[in-house]
Write a protein that binds this DNA or RNA. Sequence first.
RNA 1: GGAGAGAUGGCCGAGUGGUCGAAGGCGCAGCAUUGGAAAUGCUGUGUAGGGGUAACUCUACCGGGGGUUCGAAUCCCCCUCUCUCCGCCA
Length: 416
Amino acid sequence: MIDIKILRENPELIEESCKRRGMDIDVQKLVDIEKEYRALNQKVQELQAERNKLSKECKDNPDARVQVKEIKIELSEIEEKATVLKKDLDDGMGWLPNFLAPEVPDGYVDEDNKEIRKEGVVPSFSFERKDHQELGELLDIIDTKRGAKVAQAGFYYWKGKGAQLCSALFFWTQQQLVNRGFELFMTPCAAKEKTLFGTGYLPFFADQTYGLENEDLALIGTSEQTLVGYHADEMLKGEDLPLSYTSYSPCFRTESGSYGKASRGIFRVHQFHKVEQIVFCKPEDSHKYHLQCLDNEEYLLKKLGIPYRVVDVCVGDLGAPGYRKYDIEAYFAGFDGYREVTSNTNLTDFQSRRLGIRYKDKDGKKGFVHTISATAVTDRVVIAILENNQKEDGSIIIPEVLRPLVGFDVIEAPKK
RNA sequence: GGAGAGAUGGCCGAGUGGUCGAAGGCGCAGCAUUGGAAAUGCUGUGUAGGGGUAACUCUACCGGGGGUUCGAAUCCCCCUCUCUCCGCCA
């Protein structure tokens, strides 16, 4: 949510960021609604003041009762109008995107993202490489057919040593983050509209959400929703910040409208699994923790031996709630290219204003916290391991750091 | 699923029609005391919004929504949530 004072005093700033994002929003109309609402509200308050004053006189002045009754009628008419305007105002404010960091690259699609650096050595192969779909079937560790049979196309099973590898990766990642100062959570996998609105997923990503019938609940698209929502309507102590939370959860997304995109295998699915990083911090620190979350992501990929590149995400690929975003794209040998595995957004006070997450310092200074939302790992990292660590027969070398957890070094290919 | 109790400020908790934005406590801040601290004492301390250069002032808010009344934290109705007991259950 954008501070309504900015709408009032510097609407050109909002127009500018909408324009840069290519969003067609009538900011001026919103300014007018706000103005009208404020005038009406002022009138309401004047009448209320008069009413309050007169009611105090009622004990010894019977005429006052009659006057108050008249005021009440006038008041209810104006209040009715004000309520309508307030709703329009709230709806309009809910659709305003966050401001943009000045450094965000211009552009409309992911090809416009700016590469910051490349790390790791891209593996070379003396044989014909397979993609994860082929490897998954060969090794009997990914089952998309039965996923579709039991649930729907876009759902899948991890199985056997593949499932072991996933479990190990998620567990290991959580441990690494705990070692880096994060507190571990297990969260609800459903959340109500208020929470989804507050985190910015509504109204902007309404078509991505799996709602539950006859309930004010939807399956979470990410545990960001439940972790950030955790502190809704709370006043945090300044000295407790930053609060760094992590959790593992399934993530549900309808992915409507994305069928055209490269989606062989389980790269883009209706349910995936993610270890998330969330930071609540003071406004002046959000840039620092944004970079720290990025460092955590890079640390994990380096330990796992996965080559990657970091990109500075462009305006069009950023998402309305985001102020600045770094993606990491890992190298996938089967795809022979870099594809998104993590995404790390500084949301500034966009979510905290919607959710009412504030902090108070000992000296009484108050403000809205900033939030950082960053992926740690997802199933896609497992896919990268499969594709990059394959041998000619299709067997997979397990990354060293995960070997103690899975209890084997290789997922062996079946004998012919 | 059945029965009952409850929701008040950063937290706990009193308050059953006007003098209540709300006692008291905790917490927090300042001052005093101290070599320093603890303890103690005194003072201050809700949130959001409007108006004013400012001192200040007005409005709203006691889970949410509606109603009664000149006037509602308090009375009435609806909803949501929480807790306790019973049943069922991973």
